[in-house]
Simulated assay, not measured.
Amino acid sequence: MDMYAFGWCSGIERAEALKQMGFDYIECALASLNLENDGEFAEKLPLYVNSPIPVRAFNIFFPGDLKVVGPDVDDERVRRYVHKAAKAIHQIGAETVVLGSGRSRNCPEGWEMSRAEEQILQLLEQIGEAFVGTGAKLVIEPLNKKESNIINSVSEAVRLAQMVNHPNIRVLADFYHMDEEGEPLQTLIDNKIWLQHIHIADTGRFSPGTGQYPYEQFVPALRAAGYEGMISAECTVREPDVEMPVSLAFMRRTFGGGSAEA
């Protein structure tokens, strides 16, 4: 069996195009399901359930105005959202859900970082429990400091995952954020048992294969970590129909494999 499955972070309207290009799956924004609007959600759900290519992953867990850190957290709104998210993810059949959501998790000025961390730990525990029986895992996404002032490295995300210690909580490594933060690739190997998902891009956060990111070091580190599973391109695309097939060819050539069922 091949080690990797390759996908692209994109809107559901690109699902057919991604299938035609030969991708294994699509990764969509959970926020785009409009979970808090029952009417809009009911309209959108069939697009994901009946997608021509599997929606195996979701990112952008929370809409930007739904705060999960700070004094303005609406616990009941968060609880309802997480419950609806778990149900939708199960219906769609996604197996990995990314918690990036920099705007939602940013620690506001004047709020103690220790309190922020406690709120995030409680949230992770809540999501972990909500995901029981769904077949999905949540992965914590480290973001660079321009996007978030909390959880900026793989090792930091792993520390939180270890503290929660829930089988449904794992960690994502994003090549772009790692490069922005200068995080050593050794962290992939050091934290290998926690790795559940990978995001990639290239110089300037453009399509993989268009820049100078050190893939010749990243790929061996990922292999040394024993990682098998999904790898999603998450980047800015200027000409999708031109760039995406070329990037997929680059990904298959560089990582050497595809169509993983892992």
Rank of each mutant, 00 (worst) to 15 (best):
L45F: 10
I92L: 08
R105T: 02
N149R: 14
N59F: 03
A57I: 13
P245G: 03
P220H: 06
L160A: 11
T236G: 09
F255M: 04
S153W: 12
G110E: 09
N191G: 07
A116G: 13
E243N: 01
V132D: 07
F250P: 07
E76I: 11
E13M: 14
M251E: 12
L66K: 04
G182F: 10
C9W: 02
D75H: 02
A130G: 15
Q122W: 12
R223P: 07
I120K: 05
R80I: 03
A225E: 09
A201L: 05
G11L: 13
I53L: 14
F62K: 04
V219C: 02
S247F: 05
A161I: 05
L185G: 06
E13C: 00
G257S: 15
P240N: 13
S104T: 09
Y25T: 00
E40V: 13
G70W: 05
R56V: 00
F175M: 09
S259L: 13
H199S: 05
A161N: 06
Q196T: 01
E156L: 01
E261V: 05
A85S: 12
Q20F: 10
N149G: 02
F23Y: 15
E125K: 14
G39V: 06
Y48K: 00
P54T: 14
V82L: 08
N165P: 11
L30N: 08
F61M: 07
P63G: 04
R115T: 06
L172K: 08
V68A: 03
K87A: 15
S155W: 11
K137P: 08
V73Q: 00
D2Q: 07
I193D: 08
G22Q: 14
F206Y: 15
S247K: 01
V68E: 01
R223L: 13
D174T: 13
H197K: 03
F206M: 15
V237S: 04
Q20H: 10
Q91Y: 12
G256K: 11
E13Q: 15
L172G: 02
I169D: 02
F255D: 08
G128S: 12
A15N: 01
L35P: 00
N149Y: 06
V237A: 07
A42W: 09
L18I: 03
I53V: 14
I189Q: 00
I150K: 05
E27G: 08
